[in-house]
Design a binder for these strands. Structure first.
Length: 313
DNA sequence: GCATGTCAAGTTGTG
DNA sequence: CACAACTTGACATGC
């Protein structure tokens, strides 16, 4: 069984998350700023409940929660703690409700902190900010019962070998509560599944397999082989493997193949995934959001096998 | 109202 | 060297 996952947003379902800019808050008193942030956090926590209901209603089994759920939480000037917010109690209540709903309806929750989290950076302040950001995600994950915080390894200053060592060192300094939720994903320019596998197994860190990134940044492994490595890394912890899929804009023609298209081209769905005996989670990264997930589900379950294609490239 | 420029942050590759 | 790409849209501003 494939557990299909939606990433962060909806295009059709009336669920929207709110945000604020640091500059707009800077003109307010601290008290006013915290009031405004509190309202946004509460609205977003309630919107998360709407999002999970929609996810469940559409028949999806996973949801990636936007990192912006608490706007500007780690910002150097505008940042705050949850207990600084006037609505802290209500916010925690709404998140607890989301947690229960997800558990009851078997919705797997994850986070994917953005590109600013670079544990392999050679710059101390970048690493410190990354740790802060991960602790924020860890706190939210505890409150909503999210299982996975998925990140990339990061840059490769000084060569991949050195960068991996920096990552290892900085990873080990993170609180245990954060470490046990982290997962590492192959990226589209630097680190391939082969680059990550040994590190992941050594740190008991599961590996998220993004097949599109693997096609952009290949390592000689077939998709089947890389899928196997990913499954291994999750099996070790007795957890369900996690994959990502997306299709490039412009159908692999010239231009940047890295940007995402509205829908998943059925030919981009690896045929070998249909033969897997074990359950897995598949996040669908596509601009048409829930419509793209629905279309892919229909393509897989409704009309037999998708066309086999690009098995290794 | 509505159009449009702007948002905290890192790293890499392209034109 | 500027800019786009990475989960992206929503907010703030000015007409």
């Amino acid at each position: 069984m494939i557990r299909f996952g939606l990433c962060c947003l909806f295009v059709e379902a009336p669920v929207r998350f709110r945000t604020a800019t640091a500059s707009s808050l800077s003109s307010l008193s601290r008290r006013k700023a915290l009031e405004k942030l509190s309202g946004l956090c509460l609205a977003n926590s309630e919107n998360l409940n709407l999002a999970l209901k929609a996810v469940s209603g559409l028949g999806f089994g996973a949801f990636r929660i936007s990192s912006g759920l608490f706007p500007l939480f780690t910002h150097p000037a505008a940042g705050y703690g949850i207990d600084d917010l006037p609505d802290a109690g209500k916010i925690k209540g709404a998140l607890g409700k989301a947690c229960c709903f997800a558990a009851k309806n078997d919705i797997r929750l994850s986070f994917h902190p953005d590109q600013f989290v670079v544990l392999s950076s050679h710059r101390d302040n970048v690493v410190a900010n990354s740790a802060k950001e991960l602790e924020y995600h860890g706190m939210l994950a505890e409150l909503v019962g999210a299982e996975v915080i998925n990140i990339h390894l990061g840059g490769r200053h000084g060569g991949k070998k050195d960068a991996i060592e920096r990552f290892r060192r900085n990873f080990q300094k993170l609180p245990e509560s954060v470490r046990r939720k982290l997962a590492l994903e192959n990226d589209d320019v630097s680190y391939t599944p082969s680059d990550l596998y040994e590190l992941c197994m050594g740190l008991s860190l599961p590996m998220v397999y993004d097949v599109h990134h693997h096609r952009c940044n290949p390592d000689g492994l077939s998709i089947g082989d890389a899928t196997g490595l990913c499954i291994d890394s999750w099996k070790k912890a007795g957890r369900e493997p996690y994959f990502h899929i997306s299709s490039p804009k412009n159908l692999w023609k010239k231009g940047n193949p890295r940007s995402h298209s509205d829908y998943i081209d059925p030919a981009d769905f690896p045929a070998c995934w249909l033969k897997l005996k074990r359950n897995f989670t598949l996040d669908v990264e596509a601009k048409a959001k829930e419509l793209a997930v629905l279309r892919l589900m229909k393509g897989i379950h409704g009309h037999g096998e998708p066309r086999a294609g690009r098995e290794n490239k």
